[in-house]
């Protein structure tokens, strides 16, 4: 019996009073230690879905259970739960006015009340793991895109999250930098981190995912192992999508 970490039921996100249905009734779950990759054409709602998981998008309807707590309940302190859900963005979103070390320690020091020494030790450890320990004093503007995204990943890890959400983490990168970021994500997956990844990197999905979810028009069309999805697609929509991207 697997441990459910996130359970999503009937998730809907409507704009303009229902004229636009970004999410139209999503049911899904993510187990502890599982790597779920979400694919689909642009505008299919996959980013909205991912951003709903930590309530950056407030769902119009539906429930999200995280650690058996319904985080869509307005009385729940969402900040506490967001601490346990690391997020990595397409455009990195590092804080440009802080150096790398400060980027990584400000949240643990402010929110978790860690001491400066403790937070910095943890940050340096993580920086070493992604090979950037010598850039600790640099500012984000001095890093390459790939380096920025690696920092963004370890910045999220500094909060010791239970799950990592990746929103198209390699889409804004030059092609030669995609590899270094995917490498970090692979390592993370192999260490047992629970991950939900929205990506266009089909190679990564095939190699690393435990489960692949294909979305279109705000719905989950198909889901299964990478084998199911990439080798034996059932629906026409998935077939035509794969024909375009592979």
């Amino acid at each position: 019996m697997k441990d459910k970490l996130i359970e999503i039921t009937g998730l809907k996100k409507h704009y303009n009073g229902g004229a636009v249905k970004a999410l139209d009734g999503i049911n899904a779950e993510i187990d502890k230690g599982e790597v779920v990759v979400i694919i689909g054409p642009s505008g299919s709602g996959k980013s909205t879905f991912l951003r709903s998981l930590n309530l950056l998008e407030i769902p119009t309807e539906g429930r999200i259970l995280f650690d058996n707590v319904d985080i869509t309940d307005p009385n729940v302190n969402i900040n506490l739960h967001r601490q346990k859900m690391g997020m990595v963005f397409q455009h990195f979103n590092l804080f440009p006015n802080m150096n790398i070390l400060k980027n990584m320690t400000i949240a643990p020091m402010t929110i978790l009340k860690k001491s400066k020494a403790e937070a910095e030790e943890k940050a340096m450890q993580l920086l070493k793991r992604v090979g950037l320990e010598d850039r600790a004093e640099a500012y984000p503007s001095q890093l390459s895109g790939g380096q920025k995204q690696r920092v963004a990943i370890v910045r999220a890890l500094c909060m010791e999250p239970e799950v990592m959400l990746f929103d198209e983490p390699t889409s804004a990168l030059d092609p030669e930098m995609v590899g270094e970021v995917l490498e970090v994500m692979k390592t993370l997956a192999s260490e047992g981190m629970t991950m939900a990844v929205v990506t266009h990197e089909m190679g990564f999905a095939r190699e690393v995912a435990d489960r692949v979810i294909f979305m279109d028009e705000g719905k989950i069309i198909e889901e299964g192992t990478p084998e199911d999805i990439f080798t034996n697609p059932e629906s026409d929509r998935l077939k035509s999508f794969l024909a375009k991207v592979l």
Binding site: N54, L56, N79, L80, R82, Q83, M85, G86, M87, F89, H91, N93, L94, F95, P96, N97, I106, A107, T110, I111, R155, A156, M159, L165
Partner: peptide, 27 residues
């Protein structure tokens, strides 16, 4: 200030006021 900065702050677990205080206002 880029909306992504706000989202980055909130996703780390800062509440609204903390995000303003530590991330947005200085920029």
């Amino acid at each position: 200030v880029d909306a992504g900065q706000f989202e980055a702050g909130r996703s780390l677990g800062f509440n609204y006021v903390q995000t303003m205080r530590y991330i947005i206002i200085p920029q």
